[in-house]
Nucleic acid binder design. Sequence first.
DNA 1: CTGAAAGCGCTTACAG
DNA 2: CTGAAAGCGCTTACAG
Lengths: 347, 347
Amino acid sequence: MEVVPAMPDKKPATIVRVSEAAGVSTATVSRVLHKSDRVSAETRDKVMAAVHKLGYQPDLLARQFRMRRSFTLLITVPDITNPFYSEIIRSAERTASQAGYKVVLGDTESDPEKEDFLTQMLRTKQADGVLHLSSNLPKSLIDMDGKLDSDIAFVNACELINQPGIASVSLDNFNGSKQMAEHLLSLGHSEFALIIGPRSSPLNHARLDGFHAAFTNVAKGRRSVKTIEGDFGIESGAIAARKILASQSLPTAIYCLSDEMALGVIHVLHEAGIDVPGQISVAGFDNTTYAAYSVPPLTTIAQPTWKIGETAMKMLLDLVEQRDRKRDQIVLGGELIIRQSTGPARA
Amino acid sequence: MEVVPAMPDKKPATIVRVSEAAGVSTATVSRVLHKSDRVSAETRDKVMAAVHKLGYQPDLLARQFRMRRSFTLLITVPDITNPFYSEIIRSAERTASQAGYKVVLGDTESDPEKEDFLTQMLRTKQADGVLHLSSNLPKSLIDMDGKLDSDIAFVNACELINQPGIASVSLDNFNGSKQMAEHLLSLGHSEFALIIGPRSSPLNHARLDGFHAAFTNVAKGRRSVKTIEGDFGIESGAIAARKILASQSLPTAIYCLSDEMALGVIHVLHEAGIDVPGQISVAGFDNTTYAAYSVPPLTTIAQPTWKIGETAMKMLLDLVEQRDRKRDQIVLGGELIIRQSTGPARA
DNA sequence: CTGAAAGCGCTTACAG
DNA sequence: CTGAAAGCGCTTACAG
């Protein structure tokens, strides 16, 4: 015969009911559940038995309220659609969840208003800290001297805010770009088109400086560099490529400051029947998954995305749990990955 | 002369301090802030003045606790790295935030354990509802009869759970796949390789059935279909392509049940010097951004990602706010997009 | 090792 | 239209 299960109470069990069932105080239940300090094994067993019997799930909203923190960390992402960020997010998320924190992803679409709206979560206590992947300092986190409020657990990564004293992890953009320029020069290129990100992004400067730093005095005289602005997205790369094709003389190499833009460029060149790298070499920056699978596979600068996400999140956790107030600025090295999209300059 | 700003209080203002400053009760402040019902204009002005003067930011953790909801919605994403989901997430997120809800993204990596862990958030009140993009029913949401707990605000999308009575929005996979098969047949193809997703995914069945339904009795006799399992990701497409190349006879068309896999296939064919579509046609499914920019551009079935995300999120909001308990199952049509990766079968 | 009790900052019947 | 007051479910000094 089947035993008909008793109709369970509609309301979920609370800590009070657990404490009654176990014959202890709510303080003891709380201690068993969260800090194993000084609870007798016997008491612990009684409590755990009651927890299981009642199917108790703590009301985390109450706990968060009481403890004045949400155990939630915010990541503000400029473009959730860009695979470069996906990997950073994934590693940051893993690091956070191992430490018992949830992650909220905010897709800002590079809009300062949205960044501002999202970072309000820190002021309203809905997030304990933020990993900010943008060079804009959100208004909502500024204190009266116009600087980042020092009470806020804030880590900046990838795109850096131009202000001292902010914890950050970023790539050595200068040297990454310099390596790429050296590679291109070694292949005999001298007529370049550069597709850069939005002018507002400080990234462009470091990468442009690195690029120019590669030219020796000899090379300087003969080079020509045409610069076009994109937004790091694939479509902007395609648009820029069409502009290049419409111009008088074609460059021998197109260097894009993101893989996405490079993918857009390769697409348009293929459409126009131009061989890559036979007629024009194309290079990117980031080494996203698609760079490796592109046709032809893309020469690029690999960012250590996994390490960036993990390092930045660890710094944030240190800040949140106040283990550390050092506010380090960490710069990681990039690596030149030579694939088939670059080759000797055409005669 | 500069006025030195007074040292502000360390602690943020509370509703009590606002009520004191405004000379009203906390009840009135709360009413002004959240429900405009029956508050005199005069009182409202006094309260708002106090709010601004003190720079009051409500403690949302307290509010959430008191109201027994978090105004947070969870989206469980099988693979945050797949651009197909990015668009769905973006539209769902916009819909939610317009309604005043935050969105938490959980990257499950198709792991039922992680799905289960994340959906615990509904039990602990950290999320008011979930948009679940997976065909696994999370253990933590099951009630005693082994079915989805009807108290949970749950909407299923894309990959569907095989159980009746669950609100969902999905694509007409059968007819999408059938259209693709008809396109391929019209080009004279008869030797096919099919790269499918993981066997555990019910999607495969609908798409396989649709594919086979396109064959007339006449065509049936002459066709050959070889099936290889992938995981919808780009690398699994590349691996499958290498298997195909290693086999005795090459198919005339490779139909992949995701664009990502198709991109992996095209990459490997290019590497092997095989012309697409001259020697082998390649087709995908999803119409992600990269499908359009692929070299050659990819023939695929467009999913209305924007509409899926928006519709699913609206259903979830209806459930959460109890406007609706209908639990509709919505099926949206796909669209065949013919690009240059498919062509006439080689002789 | 354990308990009694205060209190976190809100919202919401209830009463007027 | 407004106020006094209860109470949401926890955690944490404090005391023993």
